[in-house]
């Protein structure tokens, strides 16, 4: 638990900044909703007639006139991108930063096994992600209560759950990569998250590219699908969890026998 505590303490500030940035942006969107609602009929028509742009963001299947529809697109995109970046940065830094900051020698010459170091860092990464999502959800809940509107809470929670799983997946993959690099790889992490987001846009636009949904973590975070199905598409979640596990296992295998750079 010593390393876990140290990790959380070190990431505290970063967690607060990211959570509040995402949470407040989501809240601002929700708070704008009452003003926009009256205009929404027109907006809905405009948005639903923008062809590929509409499809890319799933707005062809969502009703902007309802709070949940609005929330799924606006809140979803903010939490989706923000959360994915946070997960990527946290995951890819977890193991790599010890060598990058040249603190690995100090840590690894204490009587803690490599496996223990990996486990505590993995648990702390996932804990940080859970905390971020809890704070964002709290911001979201407060803002919905403030505008005094009805919203389907089950769907809201499902959307948040989907993004939590997405962040776990990205963090797991990046965690694995983290074991292989010893200098900055933040760019790789953010790149993976951004590419996944982009792949999902492509998959939304073209029916032929639907198969890409199995690859991208954003495949199962589609608000329209979640609201429509009242659940997550397991055929997309399961491959995602497999990718995550591969990342984590690769991280363990590599890092437990890695030569630590001076």
């Amino acid at each position: 638990m010593v390393i876990f505590r140290q990790e959380i303490r070190q990431q505290r500030l970063s967690l607060i900044i990211w959570s509040l940035s995402i949470g407040l942006l989501v809240a601002v969107c929700v708070l704008m909703y009452p003003d926009m609602k009256s205009e929404m009929d027109g907006v809905n028509d405009i948005f639903s007639s923008m062809g590929n742009f509409t499809a890319a963001f799933g707005m062809d299947q969502l009703n902007f006139g309802t709070l949940i529809g609005f929330y799924a697109v606006e809140g979803g995109n903010i939490l989706g991108i923000g959360g994915a970046f946070f997960a990527a940065i946290t995951g890819i830094s977890a193991l790599m930063k010890e060598e990058r900051d040249r603190t690995a020698e100090f840590l690894m010459t204490h009587p803690v096994s490599r496996r223990r170091v990996i486990t505590e860092k993995l648990v702390s990464t996932f804990t940080l992600i859970i905390l971020l999502n809890a704070i964002v959800l709290a911001c979201s809940w407060i803002s919905v209560v403030m505008i005094n509107e009805e919203i389907e809470w089950k769907e809201v929670l499902l959307i948040h759950l989907a993004f939590l799983i997405l962040q776990f997946e990205i963090a797991g993959i990046c965690f694995g990569i983290s074991a292989f690099i010893s200098r900055s790889g933040i760019g790789i992490g953010i790149g993976i998250a951004a590419v996944m987001y982009f792949i999902n846009l492509v998959a939304n636009i073209s029916e032929d590219a639907k198969v890409l949904k199995y690859i991208t973590a954003f495949g199962y975070t589609e608000g329209a699908d979640i609201i429509h199905d009242h659940g997550l598409k397991m055929e997309y979640v399961i491959p995602g969890m497999v990718f995550m596990l591969i990342g984590i296992v690769a991280g363990y295998v590599k890092y437990s026998r890695k030569d630590i750079r001076a």
Partner: peptide, 30 residues
């Protein structure tokens, strides 16, 4: 590692920590 003490030629500590935190962290790890 439990019975050895080691001083690296170039030693670095995690940014943001105070000296007493580092010394405590090292003892806690042991």
């Amino acid at each position: 590692l439990g019975r050895v003490g080691y001083l690296p030629s170039e030693i670095n500590f995690a940014s943001g920590m105070k000296v007493k935190d580092v010394i405590k962290y090292s003892a806690d790890l042991r």
